[in-house]
């Protein structure tokens, strides 16, 4: 039985807990701004005064980067990988297994709490100001906004499932450093978070299109600036849903193996 109340408690708790670590919030926001400055400068320099490149206008491209950096902030506020590794290392995971809830879901709901706190207190104020003062191409109809929000949320879930799956590898490997780096690389490049897929060499774009990462940043960003429009939007969201299903099933599979390992070997 799915008991909403239990999971909702985790969300509330982690929302409140986040307010205690204010230094954390500010430092995240600080580095988010610096990275925004960095990618904004890089794209300004790449366009080098041109009005458009590869069929995409400069204003739209800048918007892409700002939105992407916003979503990076959202996704970066949840830390399932780090947390689950800590639990496995300290052996606390065995304690959690005795509790009457599902662990991957418990972390998802806890994540939603801290992400919500970060969005409300830091990201929304900052990016509202940016959108007001910068020349950015905002969607004009509310439906695009809606699609963007939906695509972002699905993107968040995809990222969560992938990150959690990587985190669970801690159960099987003593040191996950190298694998983690591959994951972070894939997350930053193949997701289109800093370079949109249309600027990729064709072969790489093809690879990226067949991987789940594009669902995290590329699809919501492109919807926002209208590069994905019309019927394409629904197709893209369909692709995202497909990847949520696949990554979620992968996560469950890995989790089943991992938890069995704890039960059998005592962590």
């Amino acid at each position: 039985m799915f008991n909403y109340r239990v999971y909702w408690t985790f969300t509330k708790k982690s929302f409140l807990r986040s307010s205690v670590y204010r230094f954390d919030v500010w430092s995240r926001l600080g580095s988010n701004i610096i990275f925004l400055l960095m990618w904004g400068s890089i794209w300004t320099a790449l366009y080098a005064g041109r009005e458009e490149a590869g069929g995409v206008g400069f204003e739209a491209m800048l918007t892409y980067i700002v939105v992407s950096q916003f979503l990076t902030g959202v996704n970066g506020a949840g830390t399932p990988l780090w947390e689950i590794q800590e639990k496995v290392r300290t052996g606390d995971i065995a304690l959690e297994l005795m509790r009457p809830f599902d662990i991957p879901l418990r972390y998802l709901f806890a994540d939603i709490g801290s992400v919500a706190f970060y969005i409300v207190t830091a990201l929304l104020p900052l990016y509202t100001v940016l959108f007001i003062f910068m020349d950015l191409a905002l969607p004009t109809d509310w439906l695009t906004w809606l699609y963007f929000v939906v695509a972002s949320i699905i993107g968040f879930m995809i990222r969560y499932c992938i990150e959690m799956s990587f985190g669970l590898l801690t159960f099987f490997l003593v040191e996950t450093g190298g694998i983690e780096d591959i994951f972070y690389f894939a997350m930053s490049l193949l997701s289109g978070s800093v370079i949109p897929l249309w600027f990729f060499p064709d072969w790489l774009a093809t690879i990226a299109l067949y991987l789940p990462f594009q669902g995290i940043y590329y699809i919501p960003n492109a919807i926002f600036i209208g590069e994905i429009a019309g019927a394409e939007i629904l197709v893209s969201i369909g692709i995202q849903l497909f990847w949520v299903a696949v990554t979620y099933m992968t996560l469950r599979l890995i989790w089943n193996r991992a938890s069995r390992k704890v039960v059998v070997q005592g962590g």
Partner: peptide, 12 residues
Amino acid sequence: MRIVGMITAYSG
């Protein structure tokens, strides 16, 4: 693993 990880990250 750390060496591999660093090389991966920089290659990235």
